[in-house]
């Protein structure tokens, strides 16, 4: 366990040192703040809590941005260290490969925790400062959104490790990472939408659709956040889907957890067999 913490601590330190944490936090904060103030203009100040609007816009942003940031951090983790020659030295130390992998994972997730909670927290903080009234359940929904964003990031860190453990070189890992990102964030939903339109509900029934949504972690995240609270789902235009989906919040969380564990275990297994 000590070894895992030593590696995790070093990853966080490195990310603080080379400004990764700073850059990510500032990026998330800037986008969150601009969405908070620009995004609430069209809805005005009537109706549901202003924070609910922020949750909708921020979680839509998260679906694109957090996976990209996570893959950027993670795709280099194994193959990059092999190429730079630092991994051969590290593995000559009394440390198991699974410990290296777990330590890096904890460290990288900690980086996401710092960046996401500070960056998105800035939006909530700014709203509080400007005196907007915030309902208690909206605050809870906001905290849940930040938490699930971190979970989504962890999913893509694990996927990034799998890519990194499999890839022959860094450029290859980067290419695959971009491909996976496009696939899960854009292509999958587009394709699904196309199929639904063509199929008209003949073979793709509601049950099949529910299952298909679980196969993409970004959809799981979307379902979880945009249908989580009644206020939010109305704003998100997801009320229709929210009414029909069979998955409860615990199921969606479990799905995300599985999306973390499976790639991480696979990545560890591939890494354990890999010749450095």
């Amino acid at each position: 366990m000590t070894n895992v913490l030593i590696i995790a601590g070093r990853e966080v330190r490195l990310a603080l040192r080379n400004r990764w944490v700073l850059a990510t936090t500032l990026l998330l904060a800037a986008l969150a703040l601009s969405l908070t103030f620009l995004g609430s203009a069209p809805t005005g100040r009537v109706g549901a809590g202003v924070l609910d609007v922020v949750i909708v816009s921020l979680s839509s942003l998260t679906i694109f941005l957090i996976p990209l940031i996570a893959l950027l951090i993670a795709h280099d983790a194994i193959v990059g260290e092999i190429e730079r020659g630092t991994l051969a030295l590290l593995l000559s130390y009394p440390i198991g490969r699974w410990q290296v992998m777990t330590g890096k994972f904890l460290g990288h997730v900690a980086i996401l925790v710092i960046a996401t909670s500070l960056g998105y927290g800035a939006a909530a903080g700014a709203l509080a400062l400007t005196g907007s009234e915030m309902l208690r359940h909206s605050l809870v929904a906001f905290a849940v959104m930040v938490g699930s964003s971190i979970l989504l990031g962890a999913v893509f860190i694990a996927i990034g490790y799998l890519i990194s453990a499999l890839a022959r070189d860094r450029a290859g890992a980067a290419g695959i990472a971009i491909g996976v990102w496009l696939m899960l964030v854009l292509v999958y939903d587009m394709t699904l939408l196309g199929i639904l339109v063509v199929d008209q509900g003949r073979t793709v029934t509601a049950g099949v659709l529910d299952a298909l949504l679980l196969l993409n972690p970004t959809d799981v995240y979307r379902l979880f956040n945009l249908t989580g609270s009644a206020n939010v789902s109305q704003f998100a235009g997801m009320a229709g889907l929210a009414g029909t989906t069979a998955w409860s919040a615990p199921v969606l969380i479990a799905a995300l957890a599985l999306w973390i564990v499976v790639p991480l275990v696979l990545a560890t297994a591939v890494f354990a067999r890999r010749e450095i």
Binding site: R13, L14, N18, G85, T86, S92, Y93, P94, I95, G96
Partner: peptide, 21 residues
């Protein structure tokens, strides 16, 4: 058991370290 590597030292060819530390 990887713990035996506590008694091992290794200097790789063209050793490299993380530059920011």
């Amino acid at each position: 058991d990887f713990a035996v590597r506590r008694q091992l030292g290794y200097l790789p060819e063209n050793v490299s370290f993380n530059g920011v530390m």
